[in-house]
């Protein structure tokens, strides 16, 4: 009797152990299925993000910018507009900076049409080279184009063809094609880019940025021509925000 009850107990324990093992096995299978699903989903999301990020990071197209925008506007070196305009706006930019490109494509044309062409505003462009070696090459060539009074056409075209930063897209073919599209003599640009006058311009821009406490691009200073300039703070690179600041300064100047 006792041995029969013991064998029943042993059978029950064996059944329980088997059930527990089966339950544990099912739990493990479920966990690994969830892990597999999570890995698959994560891989899809990450690949999608990387593809979008890479395709967003610049194009090496052959856009020409809007060089006609500057037709008929006086230029001298890095300055655009009537030298006697009551207001001056100084921009600090890096030609590899995507937000500078955004400003140049979306805001600058409106400001040029409304304020520069009317003689109310002159602009100066100070090029910084903090993003990398390609910024240095671009800035030198842009200032060199300024020697032909075509710096604004040159930078507009360089932005339109902006590639991925520090990818080495700024080779001699790139510089020559930008010079040609901007209407500048490529040989003269290349010659002038290596001059001490151009390196002085770049150093001057960096010094001016440091003096004004500029730490990001694009940044802007505004004020009466020949007078003290102050920081023009904009929350977004939108025309209306620049218009508000310029209108305020113009009414103060009158």
């Amino acid at each position: 009797m006792s041995s029969r009850s013991e064998s029943k107990k042993a059978a029950r324990e064996a059944r329980l152990a088997a059930e527990q093992e089966e339950a544990a096995k099912q739990r493990r299978q479920r966990t690994w299925s969830l892990i597999g699903g999570a890995v698959l989903l994560a891989a899809i999301i990450v690949v999608a993000l990387i593809v979008i990020s890479s395709s967003d990071s610049g194009d090496d197209g052959s856009d020409s910018g809007d060089v006609a925008l500057f037709d008929g506007i006086p230029q001298s070196g890095n300055a655009l507009g009537d030298p006697d305009a009551p207001l001056t706006m100084v921009e600090f930019a890096d030609l590899q900076c995507p937000f500078c490109k955004e400003y140049t494509a979306n805001v600058l044309p409106d400001l040029v049409e409304k304020y520069v062409k009317s003689g109310d505003l002159r602009m100066e462009l100070n090029l910084l080279t903090f993003i990398g070696p390609d910024s240095q090459t671009l800035a030198a060539s842009a200032y060199a184009a300024g020697d032909q009074d075509l710096m604004w056409q040159w930078t507009d075209t360089a932005y339109a063809r902006q590639g991925t930063e520090n990818s080495g897209y700024v080779d001699s073919d790139f510089i020559d094609s930008v010079s040609e599209a901007a209407g500048a003599d490529p040989e003269q640009v290349n010659q002038e880019a290596g001059s001490s006058a151009v390196s002085q311009e770049i150093t001057k821009a960096a010094d001016a940025a440091q003096q004004a406490g500029i730490s990001s691009t694009p940044s802007f200073l505004i004020g009466p021509t020949g007078g003290d300039l102050t920081n023009l703070d904009v929350q977004q690179l939108e025309t209306s925000q620049f218009e508000d600041a310029i209108d305020q300064q113009l009414s103060d100047a009158k």
Partner: peptide, 22 residues
């Protein structure tokens, strides 16, 4: 549009990069 507090000196460059937006 502010610059992040930075001790490595590269924050602005990273922030200005086209990769800072998707």
């Amino acid at each position: 549009g502010l610059s992040p507090v930075c001790t490595t000196g590269g924050c602005e460059r990273v922030q200005a990069s086209s990769y800072s937006e998707i």
